[in-house]
Structures are given as structure tokens and as C-alpha cells.
Design a protein around this nucleic acid. Sequence first.
DNA 1: ACATTAAAGACCTAAGGAGTCTATATTCAA
DNA 2: TTGAATATAGACTCCTTAGGTCTTTAATGT
Lengths: 146, 146
Amino acid sequence: MNVGRRVDYAVRALSYLAGQPAGKVVSRADIEKSQDIPSFYLSKIMKDLVAGGLVQSHIGSKGGFTLARGASTISIKDVYETVERPLVLMECLEQGINYCSYCAVCSQKSVWEEAQLVLANFLAGVSVAEIADRQGLKGRLLQRAV
Amino acid sequence: MNVGRRVDYAVRALSYLAGQPAGKVVSRADIEKSQDIPSFYLSKIMKDLVAGGLVQSHIGSKGGFTLARGASTISIKDVYETVERPLVLMECLEQGINYCSYCAVCSQKSVWEEAQLVLANFLAGVSVAEIADRQGLKGRLLQRAV
DNA sequence: ACATTAAAGACCTAAGGAGTCTATATTCAA
DNA sequence: TTGAATATAGACTCCTTAGGTCTTTAATGT
């Protein structure tokens, strides 16, 4: 029942991109340094973000990444579902009878269904733009140290 | 980000107990059969529920379990936290700087904090009594088959 | 032509979920 | 008093996943 580092890293990366001047292409190495994300791991996450249509990639020298959509149109729910999987609180809600044969007569199923809805609605209402950040975590940390 | 079978089984067991006549002691074997829960696994879950003060155990012949509190005072959040662990959406919310050194300057932390609150509040508002069930899953399934 | 970049995917390790089994201690009831 | 029925406790296995690392390949700007 908890959100792992993949999502954390993805949000960091996206919010960093969102904080850049329009059209600025940012390399993976840049993101990785400013947000302190394990480099090869970030590489896999960016791949997912590209595949999910949240980020646009630019191969080759001077290549890197830009947001594929406006930061205010990318919700945290989008991010979660892009790098992880559909937001599902209990497997039976997704797999139905394949997960639990008592699905049809289960009296707690609706509870999780509603809880899931409540959570999903909340996360759908928060956008990357609201977390956007020009400096990155490391930058903020340095500035604070001054 | 999903709730596992431990919680499912615990809710089933508790709601079955809640559906019994007052004072009725129910054996593990009984719960296990009516709710179709792997027996040895249920044994571990009941231990947690007893340790957590949700259930009272009665050792010895004709022993078994009863609810330790009124079913309407046991929330799904209680159940979750009893058999699993504190309801925490992201580790940093619990472990702080031990989990992520950028905790102090993190711009997404508050998002997860609020999301967690929303979810916890919802689950705290649903009680076992509302799911209570005299027949158990298997019973309902049989009745439906008629 | 070359340095720089993303893309793709193999690989590893540790931890946790789910489930099973075997003691041991307690208690009712015949 | 004995024995069957019960919970308690904890070891054990198996499998999946999270998190992280590395290597190779393909594309592209200078």
C-alpha cells in the first residue's frame, strides 16, 4: 500500500522539466544530477514516460527530454499510472473473479472501490505544474545551506 | 500501492465474527471454512488481530475467537494497521530523512501527505459492522446458487 | 568521423507476500 | 485423569517485485 521510488523519481524528473524554459532540451545526465536519481534507473523511468506520452525524447548529440504536454495537464495520477500501473487498491477490482472466486458475493469490494476512487480523484487533481521546480532538489538544498 | 490478501482475510474474518450472535465463540476452523481462507495463514492473521486488541481469543477445547470491541467501533483503517502496518503512502512520510535526504526541501511530499490523509479518513469512516455478514462468503455463494 | 545522447534489454540482489508445517501450551469434557 | 480440541509461536519454503547496475546498439548534431 505504498508508492515506491519509481514514482518519486518520475515526479522529480517531470517537475524539473516543467521548471525549464520553454523548448529547453534537458539531458538525462542533467536531470539525474539535479534530482539525485540513480542514473541507469532514471534511464528506465524516462523510457516509460516517453512511451506513455508524457515526455518527448530527442536522440543524438545535444539530445535529451522535454515535456510532451503542458505541465498543468499532467496529473500525479497520470504519472503513477505511466511508470507503475493502473491505480488499483485491491487486485480483485481489476482482475475480478480471476483473483478471488467470491467476487460476486463480496461485501467489502465496494469499500475498496470507493476508497480507490477517492484516492484517484485526489491525485488526478494535482498536476506536475504545481510541483514544478527550476532548481531541482540539490539546488534547493544548496541554496538553503547558504 | 495495493492492499494484499492479509487485509482481505482479516476483514472477512472480522465481519464473520461480527455477524455471530453475541458471545458466540467461533473456532478458527469455522472462520476458515466459511470464509475460505488458507488455514495456517488465517492462524497468523488471528494472532495479529488478538495482539492488536480487535479480537479476543479463547484457548482450549471449545475455544476460538470473539470480537473484543463492538463491530461498529472497528474501522477498516484499524484492521489495515493491525494486520499490516501504519497506513503510509510514501515511506518518506514515516521515515523522513532516513528514507530520503531531500525530505526537507521536497516539493511533492505534501501531496502524498494529503493523499494519505484523504484515504485514511475514508477508511476510518467505514466499520466492520457495515460489512458484517452472518453467512460468510461460502454461505452467500450457496444461497445464490439456489 | 566522432563524441554525445537515448533505446533496449539483460542481469543481480534483497526484501516481502503468500502459504505451509511442526511444535507447545491450554482447556473442556468424557 | 486422560485425551481431544483448540490457540500460540515460530521456523520454513517459494515466488514475485523493487531497486539498482551494466552493456550494447542506434541515432544525431558538430
